[in-house]
């Protein structure tokens, strides 16, 4: 295992640990917090993977994620806040 593969492995373990918080989380906001943390970690993993395999075009996926994961989180948060009205 090279250094970067080890780093990818460690981030995978972090994702599994945050997933425990998503599953256990007493309220829906804890789950949303876990979703947010996992989305940041997935972006890191995509960047590491693109450096390991030397395929720079994979970075586009990370760019799309950085923009769209945000929209999903904010939509769910506003949906819960307004008790069901999306506007």
């Amino acid at each position: 295992m090279t250094f970067l593969e080890t780093a990818l492995f460690v981030i995978a373990i972090y994702i599994a640990l945050v997933l425990v918080r998503v599953i256990l989380g007493p309220t829906i906001w804890d789950r949303l917090l876990g979703l947010n943390a996992i989305s940041a970690k997935i972006i890191m993993s995509i960047v590491i993977f693109s450096i390991i395999t030397e395929q720079p075009y994979l970075l586009d996926v990370a760019l799309v994620y950085a923009l769209l994961g945000f929209i999903g989180t904010v939509l769910i948060a506003r949906f819960i806040e307004k008790k069901g009205d999306i506007s």
Binding site: L35, S39, V61, V64, Y65, I76, I80
Partner: peptide, 28 residues
């Protein structure tokens, strides 16, 4: 509502798995 959050995480992780198996277009 919890199922919506779980499916959000599911699609995040499944996108990275597509990337691991060499399908970046499907991942996007």
């Amino acid at each position: 509502r919890r199922a919506v959050v779980y499916l959000g995480v599911f699609s995040l992780v499944s996108s990275f798995v597509y990337l691991l198996y060499g399908a970046p277009d499907v991942a996007i």
